[in-house]
Simulated scan of single mutants.
Amino acid sequence: MASTWESAHPLSHGPSWDAAPSLDIAAAPPQSGVSGLYALALQGQWRQVIGRCKELRPASRADSLTIATFHVLALAQLNQTMDALQELERVGNLDGSGSHAARRGHAGKHSAPDASEVPFALRWLAAELPGRAGRWMEAVSAFQALLGLCVTQSGIAEREGDAEASRLWGGRRARAAAALANVHAQQQQYPAALAVLDAQLGADPRRIDTWLHAAQVQLRVGDLPGAEASVASAAFLAGEAEGPAAAHGMRAVRHARGLLAVARQDWPAAAAAFSSCLREDARDAEAVGDLAVCQLFNRNVESGVAVLEAGFQAQPWAMLKAPLVSSLALMYDLARPDSGAKERFGAWVARIAPDDLDMSCMSPG
Rank of each mutant, 00 (worst) to 15 (best):
S99P: 03
L129G: 06
G108S: 05
A112L: 10
F143A: 04
V91S: 00
R132W: 12
G108L: 08
M137N: 15
G148S: 06
L147V: 01
E128G: 04
D114Q: 06
G92K: 04
R175F: 05
R173E: 13
P58D: 04
A68T: 09
L125K: 01
L168V: 11
Q86F: 02
E158G: 02
V118I: 09
A174W: 01
P130N: 05
A165V: 04
A133R: 03
L78C: 12
P119W: 01
G155W: 02
H71N: 13
Q186F: 07
G134W: 13
A185H: 01
H71W: 14
L149E: 11
V118W: 03
A121C: 05
L146T: 00
M137A: 15
G155P: 12
L180D: 01
H184N: 11
Q77N: 14
E164W: 08
N182T: 10
S116R: 08
H106P: 06
A157E: 09
R61N: 06
Q80P: 13
R90T: 13
G161Y: 05
V91A: 06
F143W: 14
L88C: 11
A145C: 07
S166Y: 06
A102N: 12
L85Q: 14
L122D: 09
A127K: 00
V151K: 08
A74I: 07
A185W: 03
A62N: 10
D63A: 11
G108R: 07
L125D: 02
N93M: 04
A127E: 13
L147S: 06
A62M: 11
S111A: 14
A84C: 03
Q187D: 01
W169Y: 14
H110W: 14
D63T: 06
W124Y: 11
P113M: 09
G96D: 01
G171E: 14
D95G: 07
R90P: 00
K109E: 11
C150R: 00
L88W: 10
W169S: 08
H71Y: 15
S141Y: 09
G92T: 05
G148M: 08
H71S: 15
A163D: 09
Q86M: 12
L168T: 02
S116M: 01
A112W: 01
A133M: 13
E128P: 03
Q86T: 14
S99G: 11
L85V: 13
L88E: 12
L147E: 03
E89G: 10
L88D: 13
P119F: 03
L149T: 09
F143D: 02
A165I: 05
K109M: 00
F120E: 07
M137F: 09
A59P: 00
G134K: 10
L125A: 08
A181W: 02
G98L: 03
S60L: 03
Q86S: 15
Q188S: 13
R103K: 12
A68K: 01
A185C: 06
C150T: 07
